[in-house]
Design a protein around this nucleic acid. Structure first.
Lengths: 115, 115
DNA sequence: TGCAAATATAAGCATATGCTAATATACTAA
DNA sequence: TTAGTATATTAGCATATGCTTATATTTGCA
């Protein structure tokens, strides 16, 4: 697969979105999995509307996908995004967020949905 | 060389700085070289104070180095920055800015300083 | 049907950001 | 020393951003 150069302006837009502690953590949490909104709220200890607004920005830019399953909406990284390579490289550089999800699981707060 | 994981907050700060069209272009222009302020002004077609303010942010964060030579101050990428790897990977993904500098050179506007 | 849980949206507000205009500083050369 | 060039800094202003509070929407379940 050849290297694709992406318009500078598009890259700047993606970096701007990732350049926020909350959104970068969200992306780290779903680096290789998915989470629903209430899990983000629990892990990040932020209000639900605030999380929803960050998710909307990420979704509007196409960086994440959403999928409703029952009463929950699960978010995951959109690996088809033109700038996914950059996203991936960035997420390689930040501390692993898995332990935060494990803590959730141990507290019995991880959402399991089999629908 | 082992992989170093950098604090998420620090990474977010760097991405925020790169998440601006002007600053990203500046970084692209000095990806493998150096430029002085008047060259940025010419290439980006922006006011000198505006460029200076962007350069200050990049310098305050340690992403660029400055070196005075005569009446000019030359800026270059600080390859020793903790997040330099990320910076480098990002700059790989944007269109090459060299041609803009070549155009400057052909117009006789490139600064040559032998001090 | 009716209520509770999960999520989204909108309005309002405080702070951050990026630009311009004006001015200050540093260096060069006559 | 004086003028000119390059750069930095400051103040002011308009817009963008992120949060809170309040409310709407969707789904599950009794």
């Amino acid at each position: 697969m050849g290297k694709t150069v992406i318009e500078l302006e598009k890259v700047a837009q993606v970096l701007k979105l990732l350049g926020d502690k909350t959104r970068l953590t969200i992306m780290g949490l779903i680096k290789d999995g998915e989470c629903c909104v209430c899990e983000f709220v629990e892990v990040l200890q932020m209000s639900q509307p605030s999380i929803s607004q960050h998710l909307r920005k990420l979704r509007d830019a196409g960086l994440v996908k959403e999928q409703r399953r029952g009463q929950w909406i699960f978010y995951s990284v959109n690996t088809n995004h033109p700038s996914y390579l950059i996203v991936q490289q960035v997420l390689e550089q930040i501390p692993d967020q898995k332990e935060k999800l494990q803590a959730l699981e141990e507290a019995g707060l991880r959402i399991q949905c089999d629908m």
